[in-house]
């Protein structure tokens, strides 16, 4: 069973962050929310592993605290 990788794994961290910021430019809150949801659904489908997404949800909730 694969485990969620929480070690540094991004090829271009600053580029990724900038791409996300650019994507949300000019969008209101509701449109931003839908865009994020579409991105998450596309990536989740690419992963094809609901257990891994559940792990990411749990890890994301920890990050909030």
């Amino acid at each position: 069973m694969s485990r969620l990788n929480t070690e540094p794994n991004l090829d271009d961290p600053d580029g990724l962050f900038a791409a996300l910021m650019d994507a949300h430019r000019d969008l209101d809150d509701a449109a931003s929310r839908r865009l994020d949801a579409r991105i998450i659904l596309l990536l989740a489908n690419h992963l094809g592993n609901t257990a891994l997404v559940r792990e990411a949800i749990a890890a994301a909730r920890l990050g909030e605290a």
């Binding site: 509701a30 929310r33 839908r34 865009l35 994020d36 949801a37 579409r38 659904l41 596309l42 489908n45």
Partner: peptide
């Protein structure tokens, strides 16, 4: 709530273009 609505609408927006979203 607003998040549930965003996900619901996101699925519907994707489903027209991408086959993967249709089973959702």
């Amino acid at each position: 709530n607003a998040a549930a609505r965003a996900y619901r609408d996101a699925v519907l927006e994707l489903a027209g273009r991408y086959a993967f979203a249709r089973p959702l």
